[in-house]
Design a binder for these strands. Structure first.
Lengths: 237, 237
DNA sequence: TTCTGGATTTGGTTCAGACCAAAATAACGG
DNA sequence: CCGTTATTTTGGTCTGAACCAAATCCAGAA
């Protein structure tokens, strides 16, 4: 019985059948028929329900995944990652497929060298700007989200301080991935006031080293912050 | 008759069979086995030649199309749109404003670490592919442009070997900048056959170190190639 | 020769089925 | 009650086949 539960989708539409599945599913997601962060039916189930082949469902899910509406885990299922209520920022495809560990690896490569370059290139004015960011960071008590935003800005300023456009472009990708990681992995859960204070000490030391143009010290502090991030990462199961 | 011209691809590799087709075709394109702007064999033909299903060939072509290496016209065929001479490729804004020195700095940061990661992540198949590129590089006598293209492909494969999408994305920016730099600075002026031979020795050592999974050795060879590039750079006024 | 119309080739889409590997779940033994 | 093992579920990949529509090719008519 391969007949036709579905009226007809084989007409007129651009890339018709797959598009039909995409439209159907994305509508259900946006309308929260499939709630955020919850599982949607298995591919085989969807194929049967919609009266199409599993292949077709897969292709539709591929595109939804690229759009950042769902996330898939082999053996587990497909999950909605679309938050209709919240700030909907476009996530780059790279960020989406970068895991927390891969992010840490990349940061471990870039950041220590980046701060070295920044130190020998930053103008006093840029350092002043940095200190302003630091002040705001030190004012934060418990607002994890605000703190992470400021961290991001702090890092971005350091990248700018290198004066290397290629490095800045690369680091922007890293920042995107980091923001994405923060959203999905829910760092904030573990970013307690005590830990924030710990980070503040790290960044304070980092800034002082930069202001003093102490390259090795700054590089070490940069690694320290990275290690703190890693600890936070390991807190999660 | 559907048997196996190709040894076996059904093992272990991440997305293996499709990847095999992608690698095979992109290598042929880069090495100009399929000349620029010319037709490549039909999907059905390729499927038969490579011993895979047409579906698989299609998926590979999809990705090559996304990379901008080919263009397809229904009823007509698939055509190479990759110009190894670099005549009219869109240069990213970053590449445009990145200087040769800044490029070298960035490569110095990324490449030695990249090859480390690649060594512990590359599958034997990926290493085989790498050796194939190397062979083509060693066959080059005096064609500087072709050699640089192959270098680029060699590096790209190493970046892919890390399995880190974020790193790959970053390194793609580096490659763009490098290509741009090559065009403007006219490396080829100084890329004499003698120097090409020098590079070939460097890459040969690099590959052997990778194949032997000798991390430190590989990292050193990677730096060596970089230094050779720097020398070439200094030749220019 | 030129034009026209069908046959052929080529990419585009969908289907149905098979097998794999990772994850989750159930069953079992301590 | 917990830990371990077997089973099932789920996404991931590949195959082979069929049909469509756009381009192209080619033979026959004007």
């Amino acid at each position: 019985m391969p007949s036709s539960p579905r009226p007809n989708a084989l007409q007129s539409l651009p890339g018709s059948t797959v598009q039909y599945v995409i439209d159907t599913l994305s509508t259900r997601i946006v309308s929260q028929e499939y709630a955020a962060e919850e599982r949607l039916p298995s591919e085989r189930q969807l194929a049967q329900d919609l009266g199409v082949a599993r292949n077709t469902v897969r292709e539709a899910l591929d595109q939804l995944e690229e759009r950042g509406m769902i996330r898939r885990r082999a053996g587990s299922g497909s999950f909605v990652t679309y938050d209709p209520t919240g700030a909907r920022e476009a996530i780059s495809p790279v960020a989406a497929e970068t895991g927390p560990l891969q992010l840490q690896v990349m940061r471990g490569i870039l950041e220590p060298e980046m701060v070295r370059l920044a130190i020998v290139n930053m103008s006093p004015r840029q350092i002043d700007d940095l200190s302003e960011i630091l002040s705001k960071m030190e004012a934060v008590q418990a607002d994890a989200t605000a703190f992470v935003r400021l961290e991001e800005e702090f890092h971005r300023r350091i990248a700018e301080g290198t004066g290397n456009p290629l490095l800045m472009a690369c680091y922007n990708l890293v920042i995107d991935a980091r923001r994405q990681s923060f959203r999905t992995a829910m760092y904030r859960r573990h970013l307690t006031p005590a830990r924030i204070a710990e980070y503040q000490r790290g960044y304070n030391g980092l800034f002082n080293a930069i202001a003093a143009r102490d390259i090795e010290e700054a590089s070490e502090f940069m690694k320290l912050v990275l290690i703190q991030d890693q600890k936070l990462l390991l807190q999660e199961t």
